[in-house]
Design a protein around this nucleic acid. Sequence first.
DNA 1: CGTCAAAGGTTGAGGGTGTCAATTGTTTAT
DNA 2: ATAAACAATTGACACCCTCAACCTTTGACG
Lengths: 163, 163
Amino acid sequence: MNGLGESHSEQAGRPPEARAQGAEEAEVGLAQQAWTLLFELLHTHMRNFPALAAEFDLSPVQAHVLRQLGEGALAMSTLATYLSCDASNVTGLVDRLEARKLVERRSSEQDRRVKMLVLTEAGAELRGRLMARMALPPPFIASMPEEDLLALGDIMRRALKPQ
Amino acid sequence: MNGLGESHSEQAGRPPEARAQGAEEAEVGLAQQAWTLLFELLHTHMRNFPALAAEFDLSPVQAHVLRQLGEGALAMSTLATYLSCDASNVTGLVDRLEARKLVERRSSEQDRRVKMLVLTEAGAELRGRLMARMALPPPFIASMPEEDLLALGDIMRRALKPQ
DNA sequence: CGTCAAAGGTTGAGGGTGTCAATTGTTTAT
DNA sequence: ATAAACAATTGACACCCTCAACCTTTGACG
């Protein structure tokens, strides 16, 4: 349907594990294959993230910000790092969220340069609903057989552990 | 590290498959767990897609457009559907790509309302390099053991097949 | 055949997202 | 005490995105 995932998955199928000596090269192929498939699915799904955010009258980025503002307060520069964007961008972002009373700036005691971000009552409540909504698995996950779900969960946990 | 994935994976671990009668409810839990982990990893990785696109002097969306313009020509409205955005947005998008001689509008013979998009020589060349770059698996994939890669590939292929 | 609704694409207004360069205020090192 | 580094902001500029309005072409129907 798109060009890359198709041709690869059709033509290559799965490299025969018969020749086990070239483990290095085979691994690269496997990784690329798995990654291309994952990427495909991911991009397909991420396409409706804006719509999901819109359910809460949020832009995608605003949803992302609320997501990061989990527990404690966060410095604006820290948020910029998390979003991997310029600090000047965060200013406007927070301006709009603060205008909607979802977030508060409060100056830090220790360092009067930094401003800490905290969720308001309304912000925390909205974040709760947002997170619950995001946790709803999309169809391609929801319709997986149980064993695949278990395997997928295990693999992902392993991938998260070291890094 | 983020709030959701952590608490769930730590506290719940994995629901015991001992009580097998409540298969419905258990499945929901598993799906949500796997999805949350996947979502975590995904969003973490997608964060540097803009940087990847920038390696080719493209915005993220422009990269996405080039990606869709794989083989044949595409009507603008079709592209809008693929991008799940408004048609008027595509106009500007294509304007900028056309200004850079990566894409051409050409009126359809059958229906003079529609304009078909085709890659120029330069556009196809750039797309080739872009696709190759995108296929490079990120660290969290590249460092997976072979068996996980195989399992992941199989699961993803199954997930893509029906839908 | 003439009319009219529907579809493809464009335009203009308006707002969010993002970068860079320059500025202000604060901290830290020398 | 002075200079360098840092946090946040501002202004200029470009891109992404939606909506409503518009124009042209098409296809259907009386």
